[in-house]
Computed example of a mutant assay.
Amino acid sequence: MAAIRSASAPISTALATLAAVRAVRSVFGTNGSIEVSATKSATGHLLGAASGAEAISTILAPRVQMAPDTNSR
């Protein structure tokens, strides 16, 4: 599972998403499948707690065999 961070402005969101996709592909390749989530849209802007919340959801996801929901607009 890979958790990606997202930005709030439309243009920066598109650029951040593209950069995240490229980073995931460079690490995991393009031949397999990997679950990717971005929970900011579900949790809101947690400021200093955002990385911790993402880490917890990423660590717990395999235990419950479910990827965190990604609320896209």
Rank of each mutant, 00 (worst) to 15 (best):
A2F: 12
A2T: 08
A3E: 10
A3M: 11
I4Y: 01
I4K: 05
R5K: 09
S6H: 06
S6A: 12
A7Y: 00
A7K: 04
S8I: 04
P10A: 00
P10R: 02
I11T: 13
I11Q: 09
T13H: 07
A14E: 11
A14M: 06
L15H: 03
L15E: 12
A16H: 10
A16C: 14
L18E: 14
L18G: 01
A20I: 02
A20L: 07
R22C: 12
R22L: 15
R22V: 09
A23E: 13
A23F: 13
V24H: 07
V24F: 08
V24G: 00
V24D: 00
R25P: 00
R25E: 12
R25Q: 14
V27H: 09
F28T: 06
F28M: 11
G29M: 10
G29H: 09
T30G: 02
N31K: 15
G32H: 07
G32V: 07
S33I: 09
S33Q: 13
I34Q: 15
E35W: 14
E35F: 10
S37V: 02
S37N: 05
A38E: 01
A38G: 03
T39R: 02
T39Q: 08
K40H: 15
K40T: 14
S41A: 10
S41T: 03
S41F: 01
S41M: 07
S41R: 04
T43K: 03
T43P: 01
T43E: 13
G44V: 00
G44F: 04
G44S: 04
H45W: 07
L46R: 05
L46E: 05
L47Y: 15
G48P: 01
G48Q: 11
G48S: 12
A49E: 12
A50N: 13
A50R: 04
S51T: 11
G52H: 02
G52M: 04
A53G: 01
A53V: 10
A53S: 10
E54C: 05
E54M: 11
A55E: 06
I56Q: 10
I56K: 01
S57E: 15
S57C: 12
S57F: 09
S57N: 14
T58H: 09
I59C: 05
I59H: 04
L60N: 05
L60A: 13
R63D: 10
R63L: 15
R63H: 05
V64L: 13
Q65W: 02
Q65H: 10
M66S: 05
M66Y: 00
M66T: 08
A67I: 07
P68S: 06
D69H: 00
T70A: 12
N71P: 00
N71V: 14
S72D: 04
R73Y: 00
